[in-house]
């Protein structure tokens, strides 16, 4: 009977961990995606200062969540996003709007892919 209770406890803990992981990933990816979209819009409208602020904000948010995400996501996937976000500030500071815009789109796609990969959907399970 004790082992059965232990099994139930394991089920609850594991389910809780999985739910928390998915929830954290979705929350972060939604937040980052909207920040990156805003930054891209600002750059295209010529507001480079705001675009730089937003890209710095995105990078800062990412760094805050990075530690948490690295406990359950492969590090190579996170490193790809690290590199994309790190290149945004220098690009907008040098006025490279086109490259900045494409890098924003790339980072957003990587983040969307990260979110999709964490969802317990049929495609991922199979």
């Amino acid at each position: 009977m004790k082992r059965l209770w232990a099994a139930m406890a394991i089920l609850v803990v594991v389910t809780g961990l999985c739910w928390w992981g998915v929830h954290t990933t979705i929350e972060l990816s939604n937040e980052l995606s909207s920040t990156l979209q805003e930054a891209r819009n600002a750059a295209e409208q010529g507001d480079f200062e705001r675009a730089a602020d937003l890209s710095n904000q995105a990078e800062e948010n990412w760094r805050k969540f990075h530690k948490t995400l690295s406990t359950f996501i492969q590090h190579t996937r996170l490193e790809a996003i690290d590199l994309s976000l790190a290149s945004l500030s220098p690009l907008i500071e040098h006025g490279a709007v086109d490259e900045f815009s494409s890098e924003c789109a790339r980072a957003a796609a990587q983040i969307a892919s990260l979110q999709e990969a964490e969802l317990p959907i049929l495609e991922n399970i199979l």
């Binding site: 082992r3 059965l4 099994a7 394991i10 089920l11 803990v13 961990l17 406990t71 492969q74």
Partner: peptide, 23 residues
């Protein structure tokens, strides 16, 4: 590069299944 949890969770689930199946 693999998170530690990628080992813990499958092991925990296998143990849980094994206990339930044996009961």
């Amino acid at each position: 590069g693999q998170p530690l949890v990628s080992g813990f969770i499958p092991i925990a689930v296998l143990v849980m299944c094994e206990i339930v199946v044996s009961v």
